[in-house]
Simulated scan of single mutants.
Amino acid sequence: MSTDYQQARAALGIRLRELRLSRPGGRLTGQQLAQRLDWPGSKVSKLENGRQTATPADLRSWADATEQPGAYAELAARLAGFESHIRSWRRALANGFKPLHEGLSAEIDRTSQMWIWEESVVPGLLQTPDYARHVIQRYSELLGGARDIEDAVRSRARRQEWLYRPGRKLHVLIWEAALRSLICPPSVLVSQLDRLTGVIGMDTVELGIVPFTASVKIVPANGFWVLDDRLVVAEDWHAELWLDDSDNVALYTKVWKTLRGSAVHGAEAHNVINAARRALNTP
């Protein structure tokens, strides 16, 4: 998380502590407040010290338990201001691609399971270096500023070591459009499709393809990653969004499961990939 995000969460924690200490009926200790709310004592400490993001229900309960229900509107407004953490691409890329990649890699390193949906590009964890180079180059041309493309390619390649660590599992869904999009030369895409074919059957990867011909229950758009049950990373043209509130994590998980209902796996996924490869008319 960025410094801005951490500071906002810490500021909310300070305000929560003020409410606990200024209770009209007398200040409460953290343990007394936890007992009133039937919470673990550690939860009060984590919220006050900015180590956990409160939910709206947490804030309502806190305001009521400290006998200051009128404070809820202020608390909720504070939460709404930072529960969707937006990382502007232009600002983030001011220091190059490498720090941007390393920030996400740190989150991935402490993740056991990921659920990924990509509608127009092969996910980074499954990209070949040549394919990754072309994708990163396109973003550099669009957004400007970053020239450390080779560092970014190497960083993305190192991130893929996650797939070979014990206890990891990648659940990935790709729309067929990503298999056919010529963001790179046809020869590079052929190698990338061969790479996808190779991961089918890996113990650590569940690969699903949503064919063009599949009936879908939701618009297949907006790529995103769900890391364990704690964080969503979603991309837009102007920014990357990091969402760690439980409601958004649950929503994106529901979207992923809905899309999975339209996906094919195993031999059927292999057939869709091979059809895209044949359409390239390369050896």
Rank of each mutant, 00 (worst) to 15 (best):
H238L: 12
S2E: 07
L19K: 01
L251G: 02
P99S: 09
G144W: 09
G223L: 10
L28W: 03
K257Y: 08
L16W: 03
T111K: 03
R17H: 10
R138V: 09
C184T: 15
L21M: 08
S140K: 06
R9M: 12
A63Y: 00
S140I: 04
I209K: 07
A10F: 14
L173M: 08
W117A: 02
E107F: 15
E74S: 04
A146F: 11
H238N: 13
P129W: 00
L143F: 12
R138Y: 07
S22G: 10
R110V: 14
A92Q: 08
I200T: 00
V232Y: 06
D151I: 13
A263T: 09
Q160W: 04
R15G: 06
W162H: 02
E235I: 07
M202S: 08
A250N: 07
Q31V: 10
H101K: 14
I149R: 15
D38Q: 04
Q192F: 01
P220Q: 13
V135A: 12
H85Y: 08
G70M: 02
K98Q: 12
Y252P: 13
R51C: 01
G124H: 11
G261K: 11
A63I: 05
M114Y: 10
L126C: 04
S215F: 11
Q32S: 06
S84G: 08
A94E: 14
T29Y: 08
P123M: 05
A157G: 07
W62C: 04
A178M: 09
R36W: 01
P129F: 04
V188D: 04
V135S: 05
R110G: 15
V272W: 01
R260C: 12
D244V: 01
R91L: 05
W175P: 03
W117Q: 06
G70E: 01
I218T: 14
P185S: 10
T3Q: 14
A10L: 14
V135W: 00
R168S: 08
L19C: 05
Q113A: 15
Y139L: 03
S22R: 09
E118S: 07
R90M: 08
R180W: 06
V233Y: 12
G208Y: 09
G30C: 10
R9L: 14
G208M: 07
R147C: 06
T204G: 05
L37S: 05
R154Y: 03
R17C: 01
A234I: 03
F82H: 14
E176P: 04
R158C: 03
V249I: 11
E118P: 15
E150F: 01
R27E: 03
S45H: 08
L189F: 06
A152I: 15
P185G: 12
H270S: 15
N271G: 13
G26M: 01
R90F: 09
A177L: 06
F212H: 15
G13M: 04
A146C: 12
K257C: 02
R260N: 09
A73T: 11
G96K: 15
A65H: 08
W89Q: 06
L126V: 03
A77G: 01
S105N: 13
I174S: 00
V44L: 02
D236S: 11
P211Y: 03
A275P: 07
H265G: 11
H134R: 11
E102T: 10
R91T: 13
A146H: 12
A65T: 02
A106Y: 07
P129S: 06
A250R: 13
V122W: 00
L79K: 04
